[in-house]
């Protein structure tokens, strides 16, 4: 088991956001976390990454409670791709990616040419070599997100957390980033937890889903089974529906768009 969450209650300023969460995330699978704004998706990620200390309950990574792990040890197990990244200085993308290796290095060490080659290989894999030497803060949101994914891959962890990686991206870039995440998870056997606003992306790219409602687990399980009308309507309201495209692909749409007769 990659991640195990037991009776987790957590929040900010003594105000619980998550209450009594129990969940298990299997190795090598992509799990989408869905829910309204404020339902606790990001808070759950922060608890898994041990950035936020829970009020109650425990999070285990590869069978070890996060409480007994140091910051460096956690960074060797879990990588994190934030929703957006602000860089205040003009570091190049390759320099940003190399920072992902800090938890494996001695405190005084600097990345070697071998490390650089490895980072360049990841850039090649993701198809971002053409802007690898460009300053990170001069890239578009989509390109920055790809660099952040590259850094997480360079961090070489068995669990990857992605917090709304598609929130600032256009339609094409959303699918590009999600496809890369899906392919990397399959190729490297990484456990991926990704928070998403669009359930259609979960439908297309995730193996499992966990739906949160007001800080509690509303539904969880295989994507194809769990993303049904009953679960979606219980969380997002009556005006959401699963339809089918002319190619027979399921698609989640608001009811008033799905057809005026509904």
């Amino acid at each position: 088991m990659a991640v195990e969450i037991h009776e987790l209650t957590a929040g900010y300023d003594h105000l619980p956001i998550l209450q009594g969460i129990n969940a298990r995330f299997n190795t090598g699978r992509v799990c989408a976390l869905l829910g309204h704004n404020g339902s606790g998706k990001t808070t759950l990620m922060r608890c898994i990454n041990a950035i936020l200390k829970p009020y109650h309950g425990a999070v285990s990574l590869l069978g070890t409670d996060t409480v007994s792990l140091s910051r460096r040890q956690i960074a060797r197990i879990v990588s994190f791709v934030p929703q957006s990244s602000r860089m205040f200085f003009g570091f190049s993308c390759i320099e940003m990616i190399l920072m992902g290796g800090v938890s494996r290095m001695k405190l005084w060490a600097v990345p070697s040419s071998k490390d650089r080659q490895q980072a360049e290989l990841i850039c090649e894999e993701l198809g971002i070599t053409h802007f690898a030497e460009t300053a990170f803060n001069q890239l578009s949101g989509g390109q920055q997100q790809m660099v952040m994914v590259a850094r997480a891959l360079y961090q070489d962890t068995s669990i990857m957390l992605l917090d709304e990686p598609c929130s600032h991206l256009d339609f094409c870039n959303q699918h590009k980033v999600m496809r890369v995440i899906r392919e990397m998870a399959t190729a490297r056997g990484i456990t991926v937890l990704v928070t998403l606003h669009d359930p259609n992306l979960a439908l297309s790219y995730s193996d499992d889903v966990l739906i949160l409602k007001q800080g509690r687990v509303a539904a969880s399980g295989l994507t194809a089974v769990t993303l049904n009308n009953a679960n979606l309507q219980a969380v997002f309201g009556d005006n959401i529906n699963i339809d089918t495209t002319s190619q027979g692909m399921p698609v989640i749409v608001p009811r008033y768009v799905a057809g005026s007769n509904h």
């Binding site: 950035i51 990244s85 860089m87």
Partner: peptide, 16 residues
Amino acid sequence: DIMTLEDEAALSLGVN
């Protein structure tokens, strides 16, 4: 270099 990242990003990379 890593301290120039936002706090949460630096923490996630394993930096105290």
